[in-house]
């Protein structure tokens, strides 16, 4: 890397901030994958992996992904909750890789709730 100008400094800041959004300010959108033993048995790992892939492609900095415990609704696992600031959280049930992709592209990125697999709102 050669000598920086002030423009370069701004660019570095922008790029490095992306990496660091996790550490400081909270994102506005939270996607929670419920990964209790039941969820994992039902395929939550795969759902999480798909979500991470989608997130990587989306290049969107305000999304937080959280692995969380069992919701208590083991029969409908894998469950995923999408929380968008200012809106009621939506719980999705019986998730798999395809449904996760759909929820991510439509709900997380565009705000359209996918009522087909929504278990409940809030």
């Amino acid at each position: 890397m050669g000598k920086l100008t002030i423009q370069d400094l701004k660019k570095i800041k922008e790029n490095a901030s992306k990496k660091m959004t996790l550490r400081g300010e909270k994102g506005d959108i939270k996607v929670i994958v419920h990964m209790g033993t039941c969820g994992i048995a039902a395929g939550a790992r795969e759902v999480m992996e798909t979500l991470m892939e989608e997130l990587g492609q989306a290049d969107h900095e305000n999304i937080q992904v959280v692995a969380s415990g069992c919701l208590g609704m083991c029969s409908s696992e894998p469950n995923v909750t999408v929380e968008i600031q200012g809106k009621t959280p939506v719980i999705y049930q019986h998730m798999n890789a395809n449904k996760m992709r759909q929820v991510f592209k439509r709900h997380v990125l565009k705000g359209e709730v996918q009522t087909d697999f929504a278990l409940a709102r809030g």
């Binding site: 400094l9 570095i12 800041k13 790029n15 490095a16 901030s17 990496k19 660091m20 550490r23 400081g24």
Partner: peptide, 24 residues
Amino acid sequence: LIDPEVIDDYIARDGYFGAAKALQ
């Protein structure tokens, strides 16, 4: 919050912008 051995981490937290302002 930052890795002290990574200068980009410091820059991400407004690092060296004070110096830039003072110099420029």
